[in-house]
Structure formats: C-alpha cells, structure tokens
Design a protein around this nucleic acid. Structure first.
Lengths: 337, 337
DNA sequence: CTGAAAGCGCTAACAC
DNA sequence: GTGTTAGCGCTTTCAG
C-alpha cells in the first residue's frame, strides 16, 4: 500500500546524499561553506528529487515570510495593473513574493482580504484605499507590520503613503478646459470611490472660482466604455447646453466621446472632453483624448521601496510622498493645428 | 527594553482566558464543543487581543494550505480578470484562498512563479497556458497536486483542462465574414501565444477551404488599441485591396476600426472587421464590433470546481471540458437595417 | 566543514 | 468539556 506522496524535504535530500539536513540547508544559503564534492552530490540529489524549498517553516519560526501583500480594488483596471507592475519590479528584485487580493472597492471585503493575507504572515502590506473599517485598523495595529497606502494622500495615513493630489489634478484639468471658453461643464462619475470624490471636489472648486455652475452625473455602477455612453446621454438630457465634459477616468471619457461622435457632435468644437489616467485608448481615438497623466508605475515602485525599506528597519521623515501629475492636452480639449 | 511585538497566538488567548490553547483551538473550529461561559470569555479575549488565526502551522503539518494558485499571463487583460472572478466565486465559497501570479506570457517566468506558489504549499494550481518548461512539468509531477489548464484544450493535458476550441472559433467567425463576400482578408496578430496561433490556424483553414489567399500581419508586441492602428496601417500597405480584417482580440480590432474610420473608410461597406472576446469596447463603437463570445467567467468557475473537487479526491472521466463559444455578429461585419 | 537539539503555532490523537 | 503530547520542515545555536 503506497502512502500519499509527500513533497521532498531537506531530510529526503540528506538521506539520498548520506549527510544531515543541516548540510543541505547550508548549501542552499551559502554554498561556499560546503565542501565541493558534497556540494556536487547535493545538487544532483536535489534535481533528482525535484526539491522545492518550503518557506513555511521560516514563516513559523521568524514570523517573516519574505512576502508582501498588495490589495487592489479590482483586477480589471489597467491603472492598477501598472501599479502592480511597479511594485513587482522592486519586490521581486528584493526577493519578496507578492500576494494579491482584491476587494471590489468595498471596505468589508478589504477587511476579509487583509485577514487572509495576515494569516500568511506577510511582512508588509500595500493598500489602495484610504477608507478602512475599524477592525481593519485594529488588525493592522496588532499585526505591527509596515503599511503603505497608495494612490491618495490621506490626511491621517496608517503608516506611510505614496500617491498624488487628485483634487489638485482635477482642478488643473478643469481650469485648462475653462481656459478654452467652456461655460457648461458636466462631471461624469462612476463608482464613488475616494478618488472619484476628490476629483469631484476639484471640479467644483475650479468652477466655483469662476462662478460657473457645477453639474454632476453619477452612478454607482463600475466604469466601462458603454457606461460612458449612458452617462453622456443622461448629461445631455439634464444639461442640453452642455459644452464640455470632465470624466473621472478614460474609460468613461472614451465611451462618452464615441457616443457624442455617433450623435454627430464634433469634438472639440461642439463638446470638449477630458478623462483621467492617460490610457492607451485615448491615443487611439480621433481626436486624441485629453487626460491627466498619473505616475502609476512610479507609485508602485516607490511604495514597494518604502515598504521593504520599512520592513528592514528604515524610517522615513516624511510619511507621505506626492508623485504629482501632468496634463496631456489632447485634441479633445484644444483645437490642434 | 521592549521586545519586538509578536502577533498574538492561541497561547496568548489561552493565558488571558485562563485555559489551555486546545480549548481555544476547539472554539474556533467547533464552538459547540466548548462550554458556553468559556466560549464567551474566549470571544472577549480574542477581540481584545485582535487575534488572527495563522494558517501556517496547518500548512506545515498537513501540507495543505486551503489555498490554490492561479497563474495568469497578465494582470492588465480584461479577459483574465473575468476568469479570475469566476475562479474566486467558487474558491472563496469553498473556503480556499486564491494566490495569483503572472508570467507575462513567458514560460520561464511561469516556472519561477510556480516554484514560488509551491513554496507556499498550495493545494492545487490553475494554469493559463499549455506550453510549459520541462522543469515546470517535473515540479508539478513531484508536487503531486491537481492542476487545471484553462483557456485552451491541450492535446496532452498535465491533469485536467477547461477551455474552448480557439481554432474552431476562429474558423466560424472567418466563415461568417466570407459569407458576406469578403475576398481579401488579413489576420492581425500580436504577441504570439498559443491562442493567437490557434486562431491563425483556423483563419488559414477557413480561407484555404474557399481557395482564398491568407494574409497575416503579426508582431511580438503586446496588444493595445494603438497597436491595432499600427497593424492595420501596415496591412493596408501590404494588401491594398484589403476588404476585411480578422483580429486576434478586441483591443487590436477596436484600434484598427478606429484607425480605418479616421482614414475615411466605411465599416462595414469598405472593410469588414471582427475581433475576439466580445469586450465592452466593441459595444461602444459605432458600428458595434463583431466578435467571438468566449465563456471566460464560466471557464474560471468550472476550473475552480474541478480543481477543488480534485483536491478532495473526486475524479473526472473526461479530463478536458469544452465550454464552446458563440458569435456576436456586430455591425462591423454585417450590414444592419 | 558538519552535526544535534530546540523551537516556531497549531491540531490530531489520546487521555482524564 | 478540557488538557497533554508529539510532530509538521526548517533555521538558529551550540558542539564538535
């Protein structure tokens, strides 16, 4: 009767070589401390058995896993895949494995995901939202691991924060549009997360400064191109004199632009339109979509650097890091030659 | 001198309650086996300490982690976020945590990611590619965990497979286009993964059956809307009489359609065009993009069901499961009323 | 250069 | 209803 096959352990390798598991362990972390002929035999035995080191015992003894947790709102968002790419550049380099969770923009699911990740003894955590449940905050306090909140710059960060000022970014873009003479601007908002709200605040502030009315069309649905079409149709009903649209992201903006064009509206002559994030779709449109360039990959890189630095005892004088933004003035806002 | 704060263990809870850690352990898995007053005190102590169970010891003793690994080619691909969603519906329900890795369509990175995931003692693994390195195959054999390959239907699956016949799907769409009278069709291909190649095979087979020439424009770059524009421009140079385009995915197709329209070509009168996956962007275009509807979320669900079934000892007579496809004949191929 | 013993947190198996 | 013991795989420490 054959017992359930078990994955090879250091002991199995040791038995095959005829030495103790300590020697194998040493071979793995500092091969030069092992006699050359022993080393050769160990290498052969490891490949014969297909040995794969387990990081579980180390988690158990040191409560360090050489893994960091990353919580993203959704997997289908281009913005966060760029962030993830930035994080992995740094974390892989530093020998850390990255464990992802996603929470669909809901604080309760974030809490559950954090609990899951903590049960794997992660050494540090990156969060994409600054809005957390009370239990989340308590768990993080108890776990006593470094935390970096990204995207926003929360007033009261849990620990560290890396992001940009979304309110200021929105104001800058709206002002640039107003400089083109827009009078009736609508803000199209989907899924009211923190960033969407910050952009709305910036939009309202910019309009208020010029004493223009602020129209907002919003929905709790999550962003998509077709949703952009729906929202612009609704906006045109509510504000028939509409001459400009600022959108919470490029998906909504692209959908709105396509819908406007298929109604026969000329962009930018009849309606000016801008989005946020400067995704590839904006460059494929005709005219190209004006948008706010956000340093997503850099946010990921800096967040991972600070997190891993923090894990290794480094401290940072400034808890928040503002990576800024740039405006891309595509043909959807300004008339290009 | 205060020592480094340690996460609370069962023993800490036990000390606080004045009982043994076994009682706490029992409370966690079957509360009814614990006397009511004890239970109350335990609950209070756990919340006071902010206790979070560790799954690490269980990984060590049983080599089961109640976690499954999922390897996806990229995070930025809508198709795979739908798959991931389907997987999580099932795995979360069954109490499994899902660990993701991505490998950028490269077999070597897949190998590394698998090693990482195995070092966490995952109970099962879902792979999105059927092209693996030798060492990958050896590691999986040694690990002796269930594996489900998704998307394709490999001729020699490692274990189980859930997907669809991409060659047949491509043939069906190309035939539908040919039925509209197309004579000079080009296939636009990016990043030559297995599925892109299967679609090319279907494209060639359909054209060969009608004795029409097959033109292919391909690149190793990864898909994007702007790449679709580049590829269609190249295609028009190489095949000026081009009257139809089949694209390996909707991103390429949408980019091509937008580029064609900005050149003044009418869709579908001058050029017919179709993509694969039926993403939201296709519905936002005017005309709507014809595409192949692939059951991505269902693939994820069925893969997770079979994987978890397999982990729990179930066996499947048919190793591969074909979930089929449907054609969406948007206005980019057929002339709508 | 190599080995032996202890311990990380939890649960299965076996007392009481 | 509750407590005790042993052990999962590895590294740290201490001995050779």
């Amino acid at each position: 009767m054959l017992e359930k096959p078990r994955r090879p352990s250091l002991q199995d390798v040791a038995d095959l070589v005829g030495t103790s598991k300590m020697t194998i362990s040493r071979y793995l972390r500092s091969p030069e401390q092992v006699a050359a002929p022993t080393a050769t035999k160990i290498a052969a035995a490891m490949s014969e058995l297909g040995y794969i080191p387990s990081r579980v015992p180390e988690m158990l003894s040191n409560s360090r896993s050489r893994a960091i947790g990353v919580l993203l709102p959704s997997m289908s968002n281009q913005v966060f895949s760029a962030v993830a790419h930035g994080i992995e550049q740094v974390s892989t380099q530093a020998g850390y494995h990255t464990l992802y969770g996603h929470y669909g923009y809901e604080a309760e699911r974030e809490e559950q995901q954090i609990e899951q990740l903590l049960s794997f003894h992660i050494d540090g955590l990156i969060l994409s939202e600054s809005n957390h449940t009370a239990r989340t905050r308590q768990m993080l306090a108890t776990a006593a691991i470094p935390v970096v909140e990204i995207m926003d710059l929360p007033a009261q960060p849990i620990d560290l924060a890396v992001g940009l000022d979304h309110r200021a970014a929105a104001m800058a873009m709206v002002n640039a549009m107003l400089d083109q003479g827009c009078q009736h601007m609508v803000y199209l908002a989907a899924r009211m997360d923190t960033r969407t709200q910050l952009r709305e605040a910036g939009f309202r502030a910019a309009l208020a400064a010029r004493q223009l009315p602020a129209h907002v069309v919003q929905t709790s649905k999550s962003s998509s191109f077709t949703l952009g079409g729906e929202l612009i149709r609704q906006a045109l009903q509510e504000v028939p004199q509409l001459d400009s649209v600022f959108c919470t992201n490029d998906d909504i903006a692209a959908g709105a632009l396509l819908a406007l064009q298929s109604m026969g509206k000329r962009i930018p002559q009849d309606v000016r339109i801008a989005g946020v994030n400067h995704l590839d779709i904006g460059l494929a449109l005709q005219p190209q979509l004006a948008s706010i360039i956000t340093p997503r990959e850099a946010i990921g890189r800096h967040a991972a650097e600070r997190l891993i630095g923090s894990i290794n005892g480094q401290t940072y004088a400034e808890r928040t890091l503002d990576l800024g933004f740039t405006l891309f003035m595509g043909g959807s806002v300004i008339t290009l030659p």
